[in-house]
Write a protein that binds this DNA or RNA. Structure first.
Lengths: 187, 187
DNA sequence: GAGTCTCCATACATATGTGTATGGTCTATA
DNA sequence: TATAGACCATACACATATGTATGGAGACTC
């Protein structure tokens, strides 16, 4: 029988619960109920709730956050990496990310994890922009705007009209990655 | 003696607590402790916690959310209203707004209030953009981008370098409200 | 096959929250 | 100045969470 639970099982359930019910549900008692076991299991795998939270944030960085950039860096031709990045980032809602950002407002540990991810992505976007011809100063500024917009998009789960949303993304691309220009900085 | 408390006093404390400690602290017991009274007062002014939450959201919409647009519409010349809007919106952190957005992830009532405000502001921004010469379709798209960026800015309380932030805002203005062009849409 | 180790259930003490019932203390007012 | 009403304290029953202590069921080892 493999009805034994591992720490990873708890973490998986943690991400699921976080995504659907938010960080307020990340407690031993409700989680155990969701897993169909008692809290005895929880407190065997984790010292306390704080330790579980820390482990969950590590787990998230590993399985969710790092993948996006990695996927983009390997596959496809690198010239339109920026355009592809925008399209994929603004494609789905990324509910888990949104939940973690809400969490980050209340728990310093989560705040720290989000900040780390943000820094990584920001500098990556800036490097893409520089590679496409923008001067460093404007590349940083545009990366900031892009990332702000991404965060705003992720957190406003308002069901926008499909077309309106597509238009906004197209406009975004037109701004930072116009086609047919090799050196967008040299206007 | 005016040490009697009114419902408004509780709401003021509610906004303060929300801003500093987040929506998780919006409970009768901690609030009463912060006010230096017992929960007896709370339950006299409000039927229950849910009623307090609803009242608080109404109060917020009244005192905080509606002011921004109103202030812009009255004072100043209307030509650079857009530029002024961007500068003021991206000036301070708007911690209360951020807290409410976090709240909106967990309570449908808060979600509803935020959505209403978002709609109002979005359409106002779009109208400003149209007035400055952008064609309607692109005005909507840019309004969306601007607002996404605003939300992202508000929620990432990361201490950005002052200059970097100014650069980003300048870039934002350059994108949607370039100087010396009367018809930015007609490129 | 006795012992050990892993994993979980159960029970307990404690903390913090809710909502209600009841009574007390001011203040205005007739 | 008696009285009604606004405002608050206190006490109770209840719910949900935490962490610990203890013990039990299975598998694995020697």
């Amino acid at each position: 029988m493999t009805d034994q639970l591992s720490a990873t099982d708890w973490l998986k359930q943690g991400l699921k619960t976080l995504t659907t019910s938010g960080f307020v549900a990340l407690k031993a008692e409700p989680l155990a109920k969701a897993m169909g076991v008692s809290r005895g299991s929880f407190y065997w795998h984790f010292a306390d709730v704080a330790a579980f939270h820390a482990a969950l944030l590590d787990y998230w960085r590993e399985v969710a956050a790092e993948r996006v950039i990695a996927a983009l860096e390997t596959e496809g031709r690198s010239e339109d990496a920026l355009r592809r990045l925008i399209r994929t980032a603004f494609d789905t809602r990324l509910a888990t990310e949104a939940a973690i950002r809400g969490w980050a407002m209340h728990e310093p540990l989560a705040r720290k994890a989000v900040d780390a991810i943000d820094r990584r992505r920001m500098s990556y976007i800036a490097s893409l922009l520089e590679k496409s011809g923008w001067p460093p100063s404007r590349a940083t500024a545009q990366a900031q705007i892009l990332y702000w917009a991404f965060v705003g998009f992720t957190l406003s789960d308002r069901q926008l009209a499909r077309k309106q949303q597509q238009d906004a993304i197209a406009e975004l691309i037109r701004i930072v990655a116009p086609q047919g220009r090799r050196q967008p900085g040299k206007v």
